[in-house]
Each structure stands twice: as C-alpha cells, then as structure tokens.
Design a protein around this nucleic acid. Structure first.
Length: 272
DNA sequence: AGGTCGACCTGGCAGC
DNA sequence: TGCTGCCAGGTCGACC
C-alpha cells in the first residue's frame, strides 16, 4: 500500500494530532497484526504512555513514546490505514485503536492484515532498519551516490528502485512514475546507465516524491491519509495502471509488463 | 548476485 | 446469479 509520500502524509497528520498526548487505552480486535508481543502485553505497555513524536523511516512509522520500550513501530504494508478520529469506529477492517481520550482516537484499519505492529526497546532489533538504504529526500541522497550504487548492481533499474536496501520508500506506483519522468526503460540494467542517466533518475526520484508529498499521496484503492481523505497525486499519475491509454507526452500506448511478479507500466517511445 | 516463487491475507472485478 | 481466476500500493525467506 502506502509508499513514502503516503506514509509521510500520515506521519504529519499523526504528529499534528497526537504528539504530546497520552495513550489512555488500546483496543485490539485482531492480534494477527502484532509481532513479538501479545495483545495483553501491548495494552499494558502502552496504556498511560505519552507519544512524544512520530517519525518515518522508509515506509515504516516510528512512534517515540515514554517508557522502557520507547519505539512503537508500525508497517502499513499493502492496505494498512491509520486514521485520526474524534469518535470510536466500527469499520469492518478495523484491527486496532489507540485511545487518547473520549474524543481522540487513532484507528488502524487493514483489510488484508499484512500490516505489522511492534514495540521494541531498540530499533536495531528490527532488521528492516538495519538494511534500509538512504532516504531519497535527505541531503545524503546525491546524484554521485546514486550513480555509484547503480554501477555496483546488475539488476533491472525498476527492481533497483523498489529495493529498500538501495533507496528507502519507493514502491510499485512511484517506481513506474519515476522511470517515466526520467525517460528510462524499466528493463535497463543499472550498471549500463550513464552518469547523466543516473543524474536524471536522481532528479526524477526527488521531483516525483516531493510532488506526491505535496499532494498528500496517491489513492489507487485503499489509501487514506491520517484525516481519512484520499491523496491528490492520483491526478498526476502518468503511466501507472494506464496500459492501453495514450502516453501524455507522445500519445504512444502505455504498456504493461511484469517484472519480479509486479506490474510495470511505461511508454515504449519516451523511455529507452 | 540476481531471478523467481510462495507465504502472509482479503476483497474487487472481469469473464464465462 | 454464481463460480473461477486474476489482480492488488510490501516484505521476507527459500531456492536455482
């Protein structure tokens, strides 16, 4: 489900709504979302704790809370939603709610139940954070660093972009959109890209993600932001799920191919 | 090392 | 209408 822009949008909404607030209670309807902790233990550990802040790393949200296990880590995976609300919810997909008060709730909905909640003392215990690559909107993500990393790998550039060990936070929608913006064929091998192509890719990564953050993400199906609203980047999508439709630049039909069991969409004329 | 596949789950939709 | 098969925004581990 959500990729970097969607998770970042949710993070900002949560930060605004519950940073500094105390968790009064936790309601767990489906313990399958919990990892490494029981419902009872999670409820006990969270009740009475203050949420200091909410951060994002890749596609994971980290609630910094008071207490001996100060990191509540939530991965939304495909269909997870975190929605701030002023009343209880009986949504069928609801799996868990954080209750901050009579009129402040954070509801977690997840139709496919792939999402994962963890409570840890040390973020280093979570492998995802160990291997996570650079944040593409950070200063450390430079054209030179990307070019270097591309040259060291021998995979299709689409697979590279979606590998969170190489660049954090990019998923299937934005990988296609970024490669369209950069004018690069998704099947090209990373080690055969020129420095100029790497630089174009670097710009495309940042432009697409920044623009998507500004528009509060993309809603294809399930994604809702922290206020329960749809993302507006949907209107900016150029190729994702547009197979058979004309390329917005040249009019050639957008094609769909399968790479690593995932759909890739691209313009065979603009991308080479 | 890179690719492919299955597993984790449920629901929507196209086609018959 | 009802069935079947395919598709879906993520991640991990096994295997060739």
């Amino acid at each position: 489900m959500p990729e970097l822009p969607e998770v970042e949008t949710i993070r900002r909404d949560l930060q605004q709504a519950v940073a500094g607030c105390r968790i009064k209670d936790v309601e767990i309807l489906d313990p399958r979302v919990l990892r490494g902790i029981s419902s009872q233990d999670l409820s006990k550990a969270l009740a009475g704790r203050v949420v200091h802040s909410i951060e994002r790393r890749g596609k994971a949200l980290v609630f910094n809370i008071s207490g001996p296990r100060p990191f509540l880590v939530v991965q939304l995976m495909m269909t997870g939603q975190l929605v701030v609300a002023s009343c209880p919810s009986d949504a069928p997909a609801k799996k868990l709610s954080l209750i901050f008060g009579r009129q402040l709730f954070v509801h977690y909905n997840d139709v496919r139940v792939f999402g994962q909640w963890r409570l840890v003392r040390d973020l280093g215990r979570i492998n995802y954070f160990h291997v996570l690559g650079p944040e593409p909107l950070s200063r450390g993500f430079t054209p030179a660093r990307l070019a270097e990393e591309l040259s060291r790998r021998h995979v299709a550039v689409k697979a590279f972009l979606m590998d969170h060990r190489r660049v954090a936070g990019i998923g299937n929608i934005y990988a296609s959109e970024i490669l369209f913006r950069a004018g690069i064929d998704p099947r090209r091998r990373t080690d055969e890209l020129t420095f100029d192509e790497a630089a174009a890719l670097h710009s495309a990564v940042r432009e697409v993600l920044k623009s998507a953050v500004r528009l509060r993400g993309t809603t294809m199906n399930d994604y809702l932001d922290g206020r329960g609203r749809r993302g507006r980047y949907m209107d900016e999508i150029k190729v994702y799920k547009k197979d058979g439709q004309p390329c917005p630049v040249c009019g050639t039909e957008v094609e769909r191919i399968v790479q690593a069991q995932r759909s890739t969409f691209f313009c065979p004329r603009c991308q080479f």
